[in-house]
Each structure stands twice: as structure tokens, then as C-alpha cells.
């Protein structure tokens, strides 16, 4: 059984469930309707194509990147890259550099990829409301309030732990240096560098005058 079919089936279910949880995403899907985004990741055996309509269909691409690029029709975008480059694609300014460095191949309409990224980045899911559908409003609110309180307490504990540990390492055990000491050391290095540059300049001036 092709594992790719299982992967695309799972991805399709997940993506459409997520989109359905945000009512506004239907509106963001409208400009993408009828368009396709094919993504080929070097580390994966097959490419993935997202086909947009009122939902997203996920297809495993049995052909190579070069073969599917033949079907350029203004309604498609084809991307070939590697897993480590994927996070950089959210920064539009990086795209030209990545293409020049042969880390990214891009064919077709770039706006389709950008709109797809926006679709998922702008997802705003009210998880409390989603939980309330199953548990009712009060238990859902209580659960989320408790979770938020726990998160705040955990964050405060983390900050205290960090401060305590830092104090122990820098003041009590004297294993590490404090932030202030590092800044002071850096200032001294800067001053020394300036002195060396001044000395070099004076030396070269004296050599010229001889």
C-alpha cells in the first residue's frame, strides 16, 4: 500500500479540520479556489500537491518536479526545496537569495504560495469554544482559566528558577560571570581595540615621516 496515500489522507483530514475551526478561513480560501500548490521536499520520496476549492485536497504527486512544471497555467505554483530551508520561506526577502544559492526552485505563481502561508498563519481558532461544544461553556471556561493560571505560574516559576540559578552560578559558586561583568569585559576589549588602532595609525604616520 502506498504510504504516501496514507500520509496525504491524514494531512488532508487534519488541514480541513483546522480550517473548519476558523470561520474566517473560508473567506481566505476564496482567492485560492481553483489553484494548486505543489511542494517537493528533497527528503521526501514524493511531492505533495494542495488543490484548493471550498476545501483543500491533498494529492501525492507521482511525477518529478521537472515533469509537473510542464503544467504551468497561471493557476499553479511549484516549489522544490529541502526541509531546513522551509522556515526561511516565510520571509519574502530571503527568496531571491535562496534561489541564487540553489536552495530553492520556484516556478509559477509565487502569490499562491504566499496566500497559502497566510491562510495558515492567520488561523485564529477559539479552542475554548471548540471544547465548549463537547463539555458545555462552564467546564470549558474553567478548564481554560485553570490552564492559563497554570501557564502563568509555570512561567513565573521558570523566571524565579532562572534568576536563582543565575545568582548561584555568578555570585555564590563563582562558576560563571554576571551579565554586567561580561558587558564590562566587552567594553574593555573595545577600548583596547581602539588603543591598538590608534597606536597602528601613529606608528604608520611615524614611518612615513622618517
Amino acid at each position: 500500500m502506498p504510504a504516501a496515500s496514507l500520509f496525504t489522507a491524514t494531512a488532508e483530514t487534519l488541514l480541513n479540520r483546522l480550517i473548519a475551526l476558523d470561520e474566517d478561513s473560508a473567506q481566505r480560501l476564496v482567492p485560492l479556489a481553483g489553484k494548486r500548490l505543489s511542494v517537493f521536499i528533497e527528503q521526501l520520496p514524493v511531492g505533495i500537491t494542495l488543490v484548493f476549492s471550498t476545501r483543500i485536497d491533498v494529492l501525492a504527486e507521482p511525477h518529478s518536479f521537472e515533469d509537473v512544471c510542464v503544467h504551468q497555467d497561471g493557476e499553479s505554483c511549484f516549489i522544490k526545496t529541502s526541509l531546513d530551508v522551509l522556515p526561511s520561506l516565510t520571509q519574502t526577502s530571503q527568496i531571491t537569495r535562496l534561489i541564487r544559492a540553489d536552495k530553492l526552485q520556484l516556478q509559477g505563481e509565487l502569490s499562491i504560495a504566499q496566500q497559502t502561508a497566510a491562510l495558515f498563519q492567520q488561523l485564529d481558532i477559539d479552542w475554548e469554544e471548540q471544547l465548549a461544544r463537547y463539555t458545555g461553556d462552564v467546564p470549558a471556561h474553567e478548564a481554560f482559566a485553570s490552564a492559563q493560571k497554570f501557564r502563568q505560574q509555570f512561567a513565573a516559576f521558570g523566571r524565579r528558577l532562572q534568576a536563582g540559578l543565575g545568582n548561584a552560578l555568578t555570585e555564590e559558586k563563582d562558576i560563571a560571570v554576571s551579565k554586567l561583568a561580561v558587558m564590562h569585559f566587552n567594553d574593555e576589549v573595545d577600548a583596547l581595540r581602539d588603543d591598538v588602532q590608534r597606536f597602528e595609525a601613529r606608528l604608520s604616520l611615524l614611518e612615513k615621516n622618517q
Binding site: M1, P2, A4, S5, A9, L59, P62, H63, H71, D73
Partner: peptide, 18 residues
């Protein structure tokens, strides 16, 4: 439920386009 994956594979191989 595997018939869904068989059919999905068929769709992948069909190369159907707009």
C-alpha cells in the same frame, strides 16, 4: 477502510487537472 487508500492512490495516478 483500506479501500479509501486504494481509491486515493488511483486519484493520485489519474493526473486530473482543472
Amino acid at each position: 477502510g483500506v479501500h479509501r487508500l486504494w481509491k486515493r492512490y488511483t486519484i493520485d495516478c489519474a493526473g486530473v487537472r482543472a
